[in-house]
Amino acid sequence: MKNPIEVRKIQMAGKSSLAVTIPKRWAEVLGISAGNPVYLEFRGYEVAILPALMVHEVEVQRIIEVKPNETSDSVIRRVISAFIKGAQIIRVKFLNGTNRELIDEVTREISVRVPIVETISHGNGEIKVTVLSPTSSMPIKSFISKMSNVVSGMFKDALSLIKMNPEERLSIARDIMDRDYDVDRNYMLIHRLINMAVNGVINIRSIEIDDRSELLSCLLVSKSLERSGDHSWRVAQWMLEVGAVSVDVADTILKLGDEVSNLHKSAVLAFLSKDVDKAQEVLDMRNEVTNARVKVNNLLKLHGISGPLNLVIESIGRLAAYAYDIAEITLDTYL
């Protein structure tokens, strides 16, 4: 069927309810018949009918059997995958004789890296992770806003290291790197909620999304923010290897960083507010930001500077690129 449209009259059903019939051939395509339950979803100007048979149940439990010689990173990656797919309980089973240090390391990493974990218990060579069930309201865009704020702070603080003495940078750099975990946790939570919404486990209204077409856009924006967080902590990491920098070089880099930071925040705000004009303004800044990067690179060449500081400029450029990506997603979604 290609987007068929039929006219039906609304009928009274009981004293206060209204009813409408659907064509028999539609019901056959959907695999429903009289007596089958269906979900109704109000979408502002339309009502969608979703057969309950098409709605997947929450994946109650995922069992992960640790392979011989498997590293903690590999185990954690599988735990994260199970979390993102919506598992409520994740059991990690280790082989007999597994080094206790590996179990303890995996337990610590889960507590740090996996969000909304209710309990973590272990015994008899097994780690049991129980994830909190979705609440009645978990607005995805508020998590995107939080990610943006954290990334903005990380990026600003990472760039500020350029004016500090090299020996003063370490504690701030470590704090920036720790904040990246917060960005990653928010991204994983968003990815999990979107998967659950796509599979019909939760209603899109519970995550404050108006239309299913926004789900993919939210995932793409959150991924751009997650990558922006990665580049922000890399700036901090590389700043630890940068020696003393002259005032004119530092000021020029900070000016470029401020321009990119404002661009990045504007792109996210445009998406959250569905403002296509603001998104276009972000894209219109491409040439200006590119020229600013060229100016910085020329200044570094003039001073004979290479190495870590060039990698810092590269990461600043990557944040600008992610801002453009977010602006384009906004246009593609809301224009």
Score class of each variant (00 low, 15 high):
residue 6 E to K: 14
residue 7 V to C: 07
residue 11 Q to T: 05
residue 12 M to R: 11
residue 20 V to G: 10
residue 27 A to V: 05
residue 40 L to G: 08
residue 43 R to M: 13
residue 57 E to N: 15
residue 61 Q to S: 13
residue 70 E to D: 08
residue 72 S to H: 00
residue 79 V to N: 02
residue 79 V to H: 00
residue 80 I to K: 14
residue 82 A to L: 07
residue 85 K to Q: 12
residue 86 G to P: 04
residue 97 G to D: 09
residue 103 I to V: 14
residue 103 I to R: 14
residue 110 I to D: 01
residue 116 I to V: 12
residue 117 V to L: 10
residue 125 G to V: 13
residue 134 P to R: 08
residue 136 S to E: 04
residue 146 K to F: 07
residue 148 S to T: 07
residue 151 V to D: 03
residue 156 K to N: 06
residue 160 S to I: 02
residue 160 S to E: 00
residue 161 L to Y: 03
residue 167 E to I: 14
residue 170 L to A: 12
residue 172 I to F: 11
residue 177 M to E: 12
residue 178 D to R: 14
residue 179 R to L: 12
residue 179 R to K: 15
residue 180 D to A: 08
residue 182 D to F: 08
residue 182 D to C: 13
residue 186 N to E: 10
residue 186 N to F: 15
residue 193 L to Y: 01
residue 193 L to P: 01
residue 196 M to V: 00
residue 199 N to G: 11
residue 202 I to H: 05
residue 203 N to D: 05
residue 207 I to E: 02
residue 209 I to D: 00
residue 217 S to Y: 02
residue 219 L to C: 03
residue 221 V to W: 00
residue 223 K to M: 10
residue 224 S to H: 04
residue 224 S to A: 15
residue 226 E to G: 14
residue 226 E to V: 12
residue 229 G to L: 12
residue 234 R to N: 10
residue 235 V to T: 04
residue 239 M to L: 15
residue 239 M to E: 02
residue 243 G to H: 09
residue 250 A to S: 15
residue 256 L to K: 08
residue 260 V to A: 04
residue 261 S to H: 13
residue 261 S to N: 14
residue 263 L to Q: 12
residue 269 L to Y: 09
residue 271 F to T: 02
residue 276 V to A: 11
residue 278 K to D: 06
residue 279 A to Y: 05
residue 284 D to N: 14
residue 285 M to I: 03
residue 287 N to T: 09
residue 289 V to Q: 06
residue 294 V to K: 06
residue 299 L to C: 03
residue 302 L to E: 06
residue 312 V to E: 02
residue 328 E to S: 09
residue 329 I to N: 01
residue 329 I to Y: 00
residue 331 L to N: 06
